Simulated assay, not measured.
Amino acid sequence: MLVSTRKMLKEAKKKGFAIPSVNFVDQITGKAQLEVAEKYGLPLILSYAQAHRAYQSIEEAALLGKFYIEKVKVPVALHLDHGMDIDFIKKAIEAGFTSVMIDASQKGIKKNIEMTKEVADFAHKHNVVVEAEIGHVGTGVNVGQGETDVDDDSIYTTAEEARQMSEQSGIDSLAVSIGTAHGLYKGTPKINFARLKELSEAVKIPLVLHGGSSSGDSNLEKCALNGIAKINIYTDFVVNAYKNLQNNDYDDYFAAKKLLENGIKNTLENYYKVFHTQKI
């Protein structure tokens, strides 16, 4: 059933677990992810990133997302991930997304708050919740987007900036930077758990972690149990789906499709355990 992230993230924050936010780039990924959520009776955030327009349009993502979400009985939010411009975010809201992220993290704090507040004011009129980002989660090796070896340029979130953003912008959740990066890593990242503790104490709204893929199960488990209510995963899905295809024999399109689906399903099943996700 289609819901917003408001209730599920409040529950996750209150009870000390995290909910996976999983990017879907086509019918195969979205359908497989939702089948796992339904199988275990667990909440899910089905996300579509503005950067993934190369794989499916926002109109296609809205139609596919809502179609499959309406087939399941568990609470699922349809979320716009990393909305980079306000017009695109408004388009997502009008298309039926129940949650949106405005990513103005590379702007100065004043401009970030200004842009975020404009989105929050518009979104709340449509009963849509808003996520923003303070600090900046850098980029490792992206899969399928033509990037090969980009240096991580993460900028840690400070408690004071997080407090300013949460109090002045009207957002519902906040993505923070504590040592992860988008994409793949050459090694396991070092998470600043002391900073996470500061941030958890500084703001009342749920906290979000981006760049969860290949961050290490123990790191992510500790984040989920210590103040992070939503963890974003994308790269691990496409990498593990492809590995499952490579490691098994197949002789036609449908067999290949099933292997891809199983790689996606296994990934989400693992992260549900790592994040200690509970029923809502």
Rank of each mutant, 00 (worst) to 15 (best):
V130D: 09
L174G: 09
G183M: 06
N23M: 06
Y271Q: 09
N240V: 03
N244Y: 04
T139I: 14
D121C: 02
I28N: 11
F254N: 12
K15C: 11
Y55D: 08
E131M: 09
G146F: 05
P189Y: 08
S218V: 14
E133Y: 12
A61K: 05
S218A: 15
I233S: 02
S213F: 04
A54P: 00
I178F: 04
V128T: 08
S57G: 13
I86R: 12
E161M: 00
H124L: 05
E167Q: 13
Y271V: 03
D251N: 15
V150G: 00
T267L: 04
L44V: 03
E131W: 07
S105I: 06
D249S: 15
K186T: 13
D81M: 11
T29C: 08
S105Y: 06
A61E: 06
A37M: 02
A162T: 03
Y234I: 00
I93Q: 08
G16F: 05
F97S: 07
Q56I: 15
K66W: 00
E114S: 15
L78P: 06
F97L: 08
E94I: 13
N192W: 04
K107H: 12
E160H: 02
K197Q: 15
G211A: 09
T157M: 09
A241T: 07
N226H: 15
Q33F: 13
L209C: 05
K197M: 03
A37L: 01
G41H: 06
A229T: 03
V22C: 15
G140L: 03
S213C: 06
K186F: 01
T267N: 12
I89L: 10
T158H: 11
Y55A: 10
E269A: 11
L42Y: 04
E160M: 00
S105A: 14
Q106C: 10
V129Y: 15
S99A: 08
I113N: 02
K279R: 13
N127I: 01
S215C: 14
K257W: 01
V36N: 02
G16V: 10
K117M: 06
S166C: 15
K66T: 14
K265D: 03
S218T: 15
I58C: 08
E221G: 13
V143H: 02
T235Q: 06
M101N: 10
A224M: 05
N247P: 02
G227L: 12
S4A: 02
S99R: 06
D236A: 15
N219E: 11
D151L: 14
S154D: 05
G170Q: 03
F193K: 08
L2G: 04
S169C: 08
D249Y: 12
Y272W: 06
T139C: 04
V74L: 10
A229G: 11
K111I: 12
V76I: 12
T148N: 09
G96C: 07
L42N: 01
L78K: 08
K10N: 15
A51S: 14
G108C: 10
L184W: 00
S105V: 08
A18R: 05
I231Y: 07
G263R: 08
I69S: 04
K125P: 00
Y272R: 04
I89T: 11
L225P: 00
L184I: 13
F275V: 01
T188D: 00
